[in-house]
Every structure is written in C-alpha cells, then in structure tokens.
Design a protein around this nucleic acid. Sequence first.
DNA 1: ATATTATAGATGTTGCGACAAGTGTCGTCA
DNA 2: TGACGACACTTGTCGCAACATCTATAATAT
Lengths: 155, 155
Amino acid sequence: MKATSNKPGCDSLEQEVFLNLWKTYDRLKAIEDEVLGKVGLSAQQYNALRCLRWAAPAAIATLDLGRQLVSRAPDITRMLDRLELRGLLKRERLPSNRRVVEVKITPAGETLLDDIHAGVLECHVRQLGHLDQKSLKQLAKLLKAARLPHESSQT
Amino acid sequence: MKATSNKPGCDSLEQEVFLNLWKTYDRLKAIEDEVLGKVGLSAQQYNALRCLRWAAPAAIATLDLGRQLVSRAPDITRMLDRLELRGLLKRERLPSNRRVVEVKITPAGETLLDDIHAGVLECHVRQLGHLDQKSLKQLAKLLKAARLPHESSQT
DNA sequence: ATATTATAGATGTTGCGACAAGTGTCGTCA
DNA sequence: TGACGACACTTGTCGCAACATCTATAATAT
C-alpha cells in the first residue's frame, strides 16, 4: 500500500506497467492485423501456420501445436478446422494411436506464408523499427523476465 | 534483410520483440482475467468503469469514453449496454445535443469497483511484483517508446 | 428556408473464442 | 478379458467483438 507518486489513475507502479503493456500490445497488434487481414488470417492462425512450417516435413499432434502457440488456444480444434477448410493444412489420425491427430502444412499453406512473408517483416519494422538495437534487446529481456514466473516451460 | 543471429523461428529482432510482447501480455492478462472473471467483468469493461469513476461526478460522452480506453473499442455501444443492464452505469441523452449520450457510473458500479479493488491490486503484484522498481520503470519507458509513433495523442 | 454534409450512436450480421460436456481410443490392472 | 480411468480431441452452446449499415440530430451551405 505505498503511495509513491503513481501516474494519475494508476494505483501502483505494477498496474501502470501492465496498462502500458496492454496498450502497446494493442497498438502494435493492430498493425499486424492489418497486414494479416489482407489474406484473411488472424495473428494466432498465422502463428500456427508458422509453427507447422518450422516443423515440416514432420507433422505435429494437435495439442502439441497448441502448446507451441504464443497465445493459449483452448479452441484449437476449430481454428484448425478453418485452416483445413481453406486447404492450408491437413490432418490425419495416427494409425498407431488413433486418439492423436497429426497436423501438417500443405503446399498451399506454404505458398500463403511465402506470399505474406515480406509484408509481415516490413510490418514488424513499422511496429518497432524506430527503436535502436539496444532498446529492442532490453525490451525483449524485460518482457521475458516479466513472464518468467508465469510459464511452466521457459523460452 | 540482415541475418544477424536471431532466435530460432524469428526472422528479425523486431519480430522477436513483438512475439515477446504478445506472449507476455497473454500470460499476464490471464492472471487479471481470473480476478475480474470472479465478478463477471472483462478487462475492457473494468477499464471502462474505472474511467467513469475517475471522471465522476461528471459524465462522459460515449465516444469520448471509447477514446480513453486502453484498447480500441469499435463496439462500445454494446459493451455499455451490458454494463447498463447490470446497473453498473447509466446513460442519458443530452437535451442540448440529442446526438450525444452521456455515461455515468452508478453507486452499484462504484461498489463493485470497491469490492474488487484490493484483489486487482494484489493481482498486479502477482503479475509483476518479482521485478524491481528500476526494471519496472524501464519497462514502462520502453513500452511507451515502442508505441509512441502509433498513437495520435501521446500519454 | 431548404438541401447537404457531418456527427453520435444504434442495429444487423457474422465469425471467432471460451467453457463445458461428449465421443472414441488406449493403457492398465484385477 | 473386461472394467475403469486417462487421454486426445470434438461438438454444443453462448457471449463477445468486429465490420458494415442505418437512424436521428446538428451544423453548414445555397
């Protein structure tokens, strides 16, 4: 219950940092959404396709993929449904263990990623290109430190 | 197109920072959602109620409130509908300009904020309390710098 | 004075995300 | 070998958010 000069409307330094985190994420996300929106992908969907591409030519079990995503995905089944419907990935039940469904990116999915790759890179520069390398590295470091106690498997 | 030792799966330092921002926001948001979920509020709704409370006893026009929120709110009408339905705020059309609807928090809304105030503060400490003051301040500074070019009115 | 444009917000529709409950499959142990 | 629990999704349902469109009101131009 310290009352040390916080920003107006903020009750603590921690709260101020969280609100800044939220706001900055929101603004930067809007820029990425604009780019991905052109091809009808959400950030989460793009993220999933990227995970699949890294893994290719191997396939990934559905729940493993969910664990690799940046954001938690309790409804990953339906997200994969939509991507499969568009032919960007394919799913197959493992014969050896029919409970598991393995997911793999298709050539069409890879093509889509190729198509927007340059745009996404350019978008990240628009988002954060105004910060120098040192600031970027420090920001990444602090962000990792901030979430460190809150994840089971540290990145 | 620099190829300077980026994290595996990242194409640029800027991308790595953005993914860290996303992931950290996601983890920390989950903690806040848990607290606010107990009283059936979303972070955005809580944020709106707080804005209204700062402004009280004055009322705020709907769109002005939208501009004050941390996250953009294109569908603010319906968010206010839900809060009004719960009796947490009230709306009134200005007689002087019948286009404008002014929003004000109700005593019930203030009571609800009071009820969860301690829990929210404690939640922010759980989120970020493991960082020292210096790190917190630097993180806030870097986050502000990151979004600076992306907002019309700087905070 | 009337027509035009801008403003403020309400509404229709759509689709995604979250939680809960259900289904099929596998391992295990009596 | 047959019952039970664990696992890996899948499906039902609901609420919220985003986009476009529509209505009412006000300001401005003609």
